[in-house]
Amino acid sequence: MMEKVIDIKHLNKSFGSHEVLKDVNFTVKKGEVVCLIGSSGSGKSTLLRCINLLETPSGGEIIYKGENILDDKHDIKQYRTHLGMVFQQFNLFNNHNVLKNCVVGQQKVLKRSKEEAKSNALKYLQIVGMDQYVNAKPRQLSGGQKQRVAIARALAMDPEVMLFDEPTSALDPEMVGEVLKVMRQLADEGHTMLIVTHEMEFAREVSDRVVFMDKGVIVEEGSPDQVLVNPTQERTKEFLKRTIKQ
């Protein structure tokens, strides 16, 4: 049995009276690639954002390596360094160049030396193919380039789990490929990844497990073939029919 990295129990989240997540139970094991799919408003992004506490859950437990991080005593900043987050809108630090974007967290949060942080950053910038652009500012890069830098920035913290929140949704179609290629490579290298995506083909290829969410609950989960090819639930079938039509 693989080690559970993240174990979510009875997670609830509501914005005012609107319940976005209802009693979600869900685990991510070490080395696993999990894709979260579902229509917009289904709560998949909120689930991802709850996992690194960008949203505060209204109830339930998030167990990271055996510890409930929703405990009041738990050091949230420390916990977040174990999760690498990639945003839909990239969110690169606008005041820093490419290299500094990947270095600043390592230096200021992980307290690594400048040299160590720099060589680590360059290692990951090379993996995403952006090592030539270390001096560029975010505003000088294309969307795909920005997202690849954002991936390198997250990887440079050497996280246990990589979280991707619709990483290709804000990209021009011709740039989707370059980002997915990088992600595919990370998956092959054995990174633990949790991906919210609308790219069904990509989800089928890379995931060990696909989770389909609708209206704040997990409707169906299983291997890509189970969920994407032979779904058992009516809601999953409907969703797939709609997305394939497009």
């Binding site: 960008l54 900043k77 999760l83 987050m85 945003f87 606008n94 949060v109 954002a150 997250a154 913290m157």
Partner: peptide, 17 residues
Amino acid sequence: DKGQYEAASAIGMGHFQ
């Protein structure tokens, strides 16, 4: 942009950092 704060929080920075 709110995303700048979120990205900083996500890599473990505190408010003052």
